[in-house]
Amino acid sequence: MSIIADPAAGASPASPAAREPAARPRRRLSIGWGLGFALPFAIAVAWEIAVRSGWANGRLLPPPSRIGGTLWELAESGELAMHAWATLWRVAAGFGLGAAVGTILGAASGANRTVRQLLDPTLQALRAIPSIAWVPLFILWLGIFEASKVALIAVGVFFPVYLGVAAALASVDRKIIEVGRVFRLSRLAMIRRVTLPAILPAWITALRTGLGLGFMFVVAAEFMGASEGLGYLLVDGQQLGRPDRILAAIIAFAVLGKLADGLLVLVTRPLLAWQDLGRDKL
């Protein structure tokens, strides 16, 4: 038997007319991006004018033109690419390791009460330790080279991912789990078809937070005896008395961090296409 849809049941909000208002926030978003650039741009222009007019000497805080020039020199000589690549490699390795362990332990802790009672107090205590406190221990354990740096970054990435996954699992809506139970899903099928998709948005948010912390921890890692990397460029700038190099490295950090986060959002966006509100915020 075929049943005709009853118009009384309401027109779909997916109709073009219903979708039209959704376009407005996007326009506001692009204006917001422009506004976001306005303040730093205005400060940069003002500082440039101040230095060129002789109102400030720009020795400790060079004008944007000098920082740009330094960035250009570093890029032309290949130094910038070398340092950026070294930093990126460390962040990628540390992020991969920290995210993997954080996801596994977070999943175990969120899904099983006994594991949570066993793990969580210790991990919460470890979380309170400042990153820099790990440095001497990691150098002793893993040496001065790459392993200790990657380990420190992994520690930074681990905690937000662990907490995000554990909290997301613990708060999966009982009602959708019941739907899975009604359809007699096995434990494995429940995880694959219900639990994992349900925690996906929180997991991606945790990964983004972890990635951001990874970029913070890489600076601490590269302070411990690195010969390359953007962190090394910071130390080098300090020792040479070159604030333009320090600021160039900071700008490179900001650009790399933003690009890495953008890449993560780009890769994961198709997985979250179903979200109602989150898409435009990611």
């Binding site: 049941a9 309401g10 027109a11 779909s12 909000p13 997916a14 179903w274």
Partner: peptide, 9 residues
Amino acid sequence: WPRELSGGQ
């Protein structure tokens, strides 16, 4: 997507 349907749908 389910979010694109009304409550009745």
